[in-house]
């Protein structure tokens, strides 16, 4: 049974209708083929209509859809199950909210890194809801340095509601861990591609987000704060999350317009989870194309371009 969001009610109802009609067809002697086709057509029309006019808040909801593919799903599909996961930050522990390792994309060895969420209550807890501790960021950095040493490109998948705001995280320097990654990723000598596949919440996302190319999937968000927290700080309640989602201009379209990302990867109608194979192929195509282009540039130019790109971000008025 797939999960439906509140605004997907019309589609859910149509699917229910479809199921019932099918059962009637199985049980009785009535020919339902025509009716089934009609309902299926209607589903396509409604889907198209619904998903072409999503509000920012609806996209936020889609980005958190429980059926959505997570980092490991993408990595396994893109590397044709050649992914070798590597563990640990060599200092404190292995953070399950951050995964990484080598995998083959066609004939190319690539270091993949990403925040990982879980698909059920148990695995969500195991993955700490995709909220890394400092050791997660340090593990990511260790693996990026490993890739740099052997001249392998880095691809990161971003999907986090934020860096974990816990007691131990503070003790072990969450701020320093993220800061160090921003610094080191700016000067990493190998190509870096970052793709936001779900939630891109603040410093926790940016901690693996400094890339030569930064992409967002169509139904994801990327900002300095979640709409809920923004609402609770600015309006002192959680009821203005839709207003906050609008105000933050956090969708892929907005981010591209603001020149804060380099591109958008389109999702199938209904979101990435409605046709995972399609989105895996789209993501793989972007990775292959971009890495091909980036590898033609020499390392020091690539680093310079990366620093220049991020240095140009911001809007000020000269007095």
């Amino acid at each position: 049974m797939p999960n439906y969001l509140d605004f997907e009610k019309p589609i859910e109802e149509l699917y229910e209708q479809l199921e019932k009609t099918k059962q009637i067809g199985v049980k009785g002697k009535i020919d339902v083929t025509k009716l089934l086709a009609e309902i299926e057509d209607k589903i396509e029309v409604v889907k198209k209509q619904l998903y072409s006019n999503l509000t920012p808040w609806q996209r936020v909801q889609l980005s958190r859809h429980p059926d959505r593919p997570y980092s490991l799903n993408y990595i396994n599909a893109i590397t044709d199950n050649t992914f070798m996961e590597l563990h640990g930050d060599r200092t404190v522990k292995d953070d399950k909210a951050m995964i990484g390792g080598f995998g083959m994309v066609d004939s190319m060895s690539v270091m993949f890194i990403g925040q990982q969420k879980g698909h059920n209550t148990k695995s969500r807890q195991y993955r700490n809801f995709g909220m890394p501790n400092p050791e997660g960021y340090r593990k990511a950095l260790r693996l990026m340095k490993l890739a740099e040493k052997f001249n392998k490109p880095v691809v990161t998948f971003i999907d986090t509601p934020g860096a974990y705001p816990g007691l131990e995280a503070e003790e072990r320097g969450q701020g320093e861990a993220i800061a160090r990654n921003l610094y080191e990723m700016s000067i990493l000598k190998v190509p870096v591609i970052c793709i936001i596949i779900g939630e891109g919440a603040s410093g926790g996302a940016l901690g693996i987000g400094i890339g030569d190319k930064v992409y967002m999937l169509e139904n994801t968000w990327y900002s300095v704060i979640s709409p809920e927290s923004c609402s609770s700080i600015l309006w002192r309640n959680w009821d203005n999350k839709e207003k906050a989602a609008n105000a933050l201009k956090l969708t892929a379209d907005d981010m591209l317009k603001q020149k804060l990302i380099d591109g958008i990867i389109n999702e199938p109608p209904g979101g990435a989870h409605s046709n995972p194979e399609e989105i895996y192929q789209s993501v793989k195509k972007v990775i292959v194309t971009e890495l091909g282009a980036l590898q033609k540039v020499n390392a020091s130019d690539r680093v310079k371009n990366r620093i220049d790109k991020f240095s140009a971000m911001g809007v000020v008025q000269e007095g």
Partner: peptide, 23 residues
């Protein structure tokens, strides 16, 4: 911390300043 009213622009100042410090 970051200034919420500049949303992702303020987030990217973290990247910008850290990148400049490498120089």
């Amino acid at each position: 911390g970051a200034r919420m009213m500049e949303a992702a622009f303020s987030l990217m100042q973290m990247a910008k300043t850290s990148a400049k410090l490498t120089q």
